[in-house]
Structures are given as structure tokens and as C-alpha cells.
Design a binder for these strands. Structure first.
Lengths: 219, 219
DNA sequence: GTCTATAAGATGATAGAC
DNA sequence: GTCTATCATCTTATAGAC
């Protein structure tokens, strides 16, 4: 094992540990010591390799976002209907939740409120997911009457925010979060049914659009 | 000013400051010192009055939840349609967001992941809001075909989780969060249109229900 | 690159004067 | 009830030996 290989292994252990701490102890439990201990590494190595603790978090979360998004790229590319998207989304959420990645994202966003460095990291991860989800949503909206109501960037962000909200709810009320997710999925299925209504759905949506516009004082 | 009045004033200052810190610096920036400094009070008073820092947070958040929920009780009671609920929800979210209460809730939920005391506090606040929203949703669902798809407790929790998710998104990407909220409101308006479709909507919903049930392997 | 040791300060919580 | 002073511990970060 050469010197550079060893340092690479050290960095990898530190980054993995950083994600583990974020997942298990939250942003409030994060410190150079908790991470280094979990990695089985010396605490001073964090500052040697990353300068600051935020630097390590940034590296860890960016790498994690790359890996996570790549994991579903193929599945998302094959999505053909909103029902497909719901099904893939459900699998994705379940799997990423078990890996702790949704929780990491939630903690990152919670910390981003006060910390500019964490905010930049969070923005990067959010954008990474947006880059995967938005094209799929855009493709689905092309043939859907729902395009009259929402655009792809906004809908993709709504989906991400929904996952984060459910995950936070989960920590305080696991049963309630499960019910909420189930309801969200069912409502998504209802929205998809609009597609199947054809001209009737399109007419209904137009009427909704008119009323929604009026209630916000638009012309 | 009697002795008891002064102590009541001290506790009030501490509790207000606790909420301010949670809102401005997040759960990671919370400490007995940051709270006491912001309150202009001695740090040791926190432990005299509440035993622990978590005790102060609990008292502060419970009081805040009582006040916040009471603020909208009348408006929520007068809600007659899902469109009304969306409108009230929008005003409520905007106002509570400006007061910082949505952010406090988000930070509380983020901290609840690792801290049992904070989790109990978060559960109380969540239940408090649930107690206000659920009856309204239940009332609306009574005359809606949507009742075929979701029940009141789950839908109420979905709404709460959505607000929390959007708020966290807001810290990292304010413009994106605004778009996501807008999309969410428009989709809500679409769901409400199901009501106006009458028998057609009901038939569409039944077909959705069948497919949703099948995809989850139910009979 | 990795280690020990340490600086300089923050943290939750307590003891005891007033 | 409120204050000062203090505890033991934890924090980020650095210096310097290896």
C-alpha cells in the first residue's frame, strides 16, 4: 500500500464516518471528534485533509450525492408514466432512507439555515437531485394536461421537499410519517388519473387554472 | 413588581429567547449561553427554572404551539371547501413563516432525530397542529370523492410535513422553495377540481384506487 | 501523512453568596 | 430568585515530533 493510497483510504473513512454521524446523531451531534472516533482516525487529520470540519462535510455530501443519484439514473430514464415515477420514487425513497441518505439531507438542510458553508453544500446536493428528477418530470409533463398547472422545475423541487419533510416527520412520529407518505402517494396517483380523463381532465384543469389565477389576483 | 412577577417575566424572556435562537441560529447553534445572552438574563437561571436546557426548549415550544394554533382556530373553523383550506393554509404558512415558527418547528424536528427530550417536544407540537388541522380535513372529506383515496389524519399529517419540507428547502434555495410551494398549491387546486367533476371524478377515483391497490399487491 | 500535545475557548451544570 | 465563580468536559484548530 503506497503512501497516497493510504491517505485516500483515510479520507474515505473520514467521509463515510461524517455521513454516519450526520445520520445517527444529527447536525447538533456533529464534531471533529465524533467523526474521527467513528472513523477510527486521528482528529487532527480532518484539518490536515479538509482544512475545516465543514470542508469534510462538503466533500462527504458531494460524493454521496454523486453516488446516490447515479444509482437511479437508469431507472429514472426508463420511467414512462407518472405511475412509473411514483413507483420508482417509492423504491428510491425506501432504499435511500434505509441507507440514511434522506436523513443526512434533512440534517444538512437544517444546518444550512445558519451556516453558509453547509448551505452551499446543501445547494449542491439539491441541484444534483434536481438534475436527475427534472428531466424525467419534464418528459412526463410533455404529454400531460398537468403541464397547464405546473412546470417541471417546480414540480421536481416539490417532490424533493416532500421527501425531506416526511423524513423529518419520521423522527418524531414514525407511524404518522408512514401514513402521510401513503396519502401523498395516493394523491399522486389521483393526479395521474387526470391524464386518463383526456379532454374532460384538460377542461377541468383549465377551469382550475382560471380560478387559481383569479384567487391570486392575476388577470 | 412582586418577586413572583419578576420570575414570571424572567421565564418569559428566556422562553422567547429560546425560540429566537432556534429560529436565527438553528438547533446546532443552541446553547444555554446563546439563549441567556439573547434574553439578557443570567445563564444559571435556565437550570434553576427548567433543570436542563431541553426543559426550557420544551416549555418554550409548547407555549408557542398553543399560541400559534389558537391564532388560526377561528379561520380554520370557517373553512368550507378545499379552496378555502388552501387559501387559509397559504396565509397561515406565510404568517407563521414570517414569525419564524415554521423554522423553529423544522429545527425542532431536526434535533428530535438524536435527542429524546426534543423528540417528545416535537411530538407535542405536531399533535397540537394535527388537532387543529385534522377536524377541518375530516369535515371537507365528508362530502368529497377524495375520501375514497385518503383519510383525514393522514392527509393532515401530509400537509404538516409539506410545510416543514418547504421551509427547510427555503434555507438552501429560497427561489426554488417559492416555486415548489406554488406548484404544491396548484396541485392542491387540481385535487379540489375532482370535487367539481361529480360522478365522473368519483369513477376516475375508483379506477385509481383499484390500480393503486394492485400495484401494492393488495387484493 | 500521521501522530501527540496543547492552545484558547465554549459547553452543561452546580455551589454558594446575596 | 438572581448573581458570580467555578467544575469538568468538550470544542475547533494548530505546532511540531516522527
Amino acid at each position: 500500500m503506497t503512501v497516497t493510497e493510504r491517505s485516500r483510504a483515510t479520507r474515505e473513512k473520514l467521509e463515510d464516518a461524517a455521513l454516519n454521524v450526520l445520520q445517527a446523531e444529527g447536525i447538533a451531534g456533529l464534531s471533529a471528534r465524533t467523526v474521527a472516533d467513528r472513523a477510527g482516525q486521528n482528529q487532527a487529520l480532518i484539518f490536515y485533509h479538509y482544512g475545516t470540519l465543514a470542508g469534510l462535510i462538503d466533500a462527504a455530501c458531494r460524493r454521496s450525492a454523486e453516488v446516490s443519484t447515479a444509482r437511479y439514473r437508469d431507472q429514472l430514464a426508463r420511467v414512462a408514466t407518472f405511475a412509473d415515477l411514483l413507483a420508482v420514487g417509492r423504491r428510491l425513497h425506501e432504499q435511500e432512507r434505509e441507507l440514511g441518505n434522506v436523513r443526512v439531507m434533512a440534517q444538512l438542510l437544517a444546518g444550512a439555515q445558519q451556516d453558509d458553508a453547509l448551505a452551499a453544500t446543501a445547494r449542491f446536493c439539491l441541484e444534483r437531485w434536481q438534475g436527475e428528477i427534472e428531466p424525467v418530470v419534464r418528459r412526463l409533463l410533455r404529454d400531460s394536461p398537468l403541464a397547464l398547472v405546473v412546470d417541471a422545475p417546480a414540480l421536481a423541487r416539490t417532490i424533493s421537499a416532500g421527501f425531506v419533510g416526511i423524513e423529518l416527520y419520521e423522527g418524531a412520529d414514525p407511524d404518522g410519517a408512514r401514513d402521510a407518505l401513503e396519502a401523498l402517494q395516493r394523491l399522486g396517483a389521483v393526479l395521474e388519473a387526470i391524464d386518463d380523463l383526456g379532454p374532460v381532465g384538460r377542461r377541468a384543469l383549465r377551469s382550475v387554472l382560471r380560478r387559481a389565477g383569479k384567487s391570486r389576483g392575476e388577470t
